[in-house]
Simulated scan of single mutants.
Amino acid sequence: MKVEIINNKKTFWVLVLIPFQVFSMHIAEGFLPKEWAFFWTLVFIPFLVYGYRKLKRQIEKVPSTKLLFAVVCAFVFVLSSFKIPSVAGSSSHLTGIALGAILFGASTMSVAGLIVLLFQALLLAHGGITTLGANAFSMAVVGAFSAVWVYKLAVKLKVSQWLCVFLAAVVSDFLIYVTTSMQLALAFQSETNSLLENAIKFMSVFAITQVPLALIEGVFTVFVFKLLLNYSKNELTLLNPLLK
């Protein structure tokens, strides 16, 4: 699909209204132009390398957290596998990435995100291999770092812990969808519309379902967070002193 296909408003809305799954929160296989798919892969790789090294050090420091990391990956996989129909044949879904970001740190979620997205692309045809870098960047980088920043800010403001987690998950989910919309707007720029105008149009496809889904994700994340903290508080506080 070439960038030139979106050169006016009518063409844009014809594309959006075709009931394909290219506008789900995971960008579908082959949908991004190859130069953009390559670009996002290059952007994601440094985060993956750093995240892997940090995760390796964490597991060496506290070996018992290996199982907890597996639980976090499973949580992300399950939540992000459920697609909820949105408008015009598109779909939205939860992500679950905030939980791991708060527990293990934002950078380690690049590893979890890659594992989850790879399995989903191969087993569920959800997302794709060529779009793996773009999807991983939006979910496992933007989603993870925004969750940690919001959590830390809420802690400084002396907000209760459950509300810190809830806010982190809600903002993380919302910013993932905003980032995906920006990625699509960049890839399919229009001669008649600005980048921001295109991004707003893409975001409008998700907005009806994504806002309530972000709130639901916040509730799920708080529940699982409290469950893990009750059973593994000693191990997790060694990794993240903010969890004390």
Rank of each mutant, 00 (worst) to 15 (best):
K2F: 05
V3Q: 15
V3T: 15
V3G: 11
E4Y: 11
E4I: 11
F12Y: 14
L15A: 13
V16I: 15
I18K: 14
P19I: 09
P19V: 09
F20H: 15
Q21C: 07
V22Q: 14
M25G: 04
M25Q: 12
H26F: 15
I27E: 07
A28P: 06
G30S: 11
P33L: 13
K34N: 10
F38M: 12
F44G: 09
I45C: 03
I45R: 04
P46R: 06
F47W: 12
Y50K: 08
Y52T: 13
K54I: 15
L55W: 07
L55V: 09
K56A: 12
K56G: 05
R57Q: 11
Q58K: 13
I59E: 08
E60D: 12
V62K: 00
S64I: 02
S64Y: 03
S64V: 07
L67N: 11
L68F: 04
L68P: 02
L68Q: 03
F69N: 05
A70H: 00
V71Q: 07
V72D: 12
F77Q: 06
V78Q: 03
F82K: 00
I84R: 02
I84N: 02
P85K: 10
S86E: 11
V87D: 02
V87C: 02
A88C: 09
G89V: 11
S91I: 04
S91V: 05
S91C: 07
S92V: 12
H93G: 11
H93Q: 13
G96P: 06
L99H: 05
A101V: 06
G105E: 00
A106L: 00
T108H: 02
T108P: 01
M109K: 00
V111Q: 01
I115G: 03
V116S: 09
L118H: 05
F119I: 13
F119R: 02
L123S: 07
L124K: 15
A125M: 12
A125G: 08
H126Q: 15
L132P: 02
N135K: 11
F137P: 03
F137Q: 03
A140W: 08
V141Q: 06
L153Y: 11
A154G: 05
A154V: 01
L157N: 11
W162C: 01
L163D: 03
V165A: 02
F166W: 13
L167M: 15
V170F: 14
V171L: 15
D173C: 12
I176Q: 06
I176P: 01
V178D: 01
V178G: 04
M182S: 10
M182R: 02
M182C: 12
A185L: 06
S190V: 03
N193D: 10
S194P: 07
S194M: 03
A199N: 03
I200Q: 10
I200S: 04
S204V: 04
S204P: 00
V205F: 10
I208D: 04
I208V: 15
I208H: 11
T209H: 09
Q210L: 10
P212D: 06
L213P: 13
E217Q: 08
E217G: 07
G218C: 05
G218F: 04
G218R: 05
V222A: 05
V222F: 03
F223K: 14
F223E: 07
K226S: 10
N230M: 04
N230H: 08
S232M: 00
K233L: 06
N234R: 12
N234E: 15
E235M: 06
T237I: 14
T237F: 03
L238W: 00
L238G: 00
L243I: 08
